Amino acid sequence: MVACERQLLGLALACIGLLGSIISCALPTWRILTAFENFTFITFLTGSKYNKMVEGLWKTCAILPTGQTQCTRYKDIPLPEDMKAARGLIIIAIIIEVLGILLGVAGRNFMNFVPDERQRSKMALTSGIAFLIAGFFVLIPVSWTTNNINDHFHPNDPKVVKKMELGAALYIGWFTTVLLFLGGGLVCSSFFRRNGTGLTFLFFK
């Protein structure tokens, strides 16, 4: 695969990664808490019985046995510290991804935003590095949240959750991390050429 094709494929993967980051950030299913009964975390459900609750970066929702969903935003209830950190990191990742995509598009040879070829190459290389950095900013919160998942949350109180599970947003986050690392790696690899003595770094071909 030639360098320009690697750049284009890496940029496409990063665009999909940006979409995944936005979806992961918006979904309220980072953690799934099950086996609730008479739980008073959401005040308007005090005394009611339900067996599933989901937590996201922006709101938490209780799923009633009837299938109805009732949600509360974190401005009305305290935001857990790990969710607060995850929210900030994901938002930073999205901003970096947007900047990386803009740099990647401006650095493409068929674009004339920057007439100097060497400057375009530097912009394209910077976009690849940005995708790698964004991948770490997504990896940290999903790994942190995954590490905090356990099945013995408040084990001595039968009225509080008995089980924690991974939500769909975390799986999307893992997939997004892979896409960003692949995209950034492909873009950066297009600036290396193999010769008789090894790999040579290129700013432009």
Rank of each mutant, 00 (worst) to 15 (best):
D76A: 05
I96D: 05
A168I: 05
I63Q: 04
F110K: 15
K75T: 11
L79F: 03
G135R: 07
F41H: 07
F113D: 15
I172M: 09
M1W: 00
C188H: 07
G17D: 03
R73Q: 06
P65C: 04
S24H: 01
M164R: 01
E165C: 04
T200N: 11
K205N: 14
T66Q: 04
G100P: 08
A85T: 15
I77C: 11
C4Y: 07
K84P: 11
A14G: 15
C4F: 01
K49R: 15
R87S: 04
W144Q: 13
I129H: 12
Y50P: 11
K205D: 09
Q7Y: 00
I16T: 12
M123W: 11
N195K: 07
I172Y: 02
E117D: 07
K163V: 02
L180D: 00
T34D: 05
A106I: 02
D82L: 07
L11G: 05
D116Q: 07
F131T: 04
P65M: 00
K84L: 13
Y74N: 04
A35Q: 14
F181W: 08
F137I: 06
G128S: 08
F192S: 01
F36M: 13
V142L: 13
L166N: 08
V160I: 08
G173F: 02
G56F: 03
L18S: 04
I91H: 02
L8H: 01
A134Q: 08
M164A: 00
L180N: 03
L139W: 02
L180R: 11
L19V: 11
E37K: 15
L9P: 12
P28D: 03
L19A: 15
A35H: 14
A12R: 06
V98D: 14
W58S: 15
K59G: 00
H154W: 02
I95L: 14
L102C: 14
T176A: 03
M111G: 07
D151A: 12
L19T: 06
L64T: 02
E97S: 11
L9F: 03
Y50S: 14
L132Y: 00
E5V: 12
M83D: 11
G135P: 01
V2A: 12
D116K: 06
A86I: 04
L170C: 08
F39R: 14
T69W: 02
P158V: 04
E81S: 11
K122G: 15
A12W: 00
C25G: 10
S143E: 10
L64G: 09
G135M: 03
L102D: 12
I90D: 12
S143V: 12
A86W: 05
S127E: 10
F110N: 15
G107V: 09
K205Y: 03
I140Q: 12
T72F: 04
S143I: 10
H154K: 14
R73L: 03
G100Y: 08
I95E: 10
G135I: 00
V142W: 06
G47R: 10
L179R: 00
I63R: 06
K75S: 10
T197L: 10
I94K: 06
G167Q: 04
G47F: 06
S21N: 02
R118W: 03
R194H: 14
D157H: 10
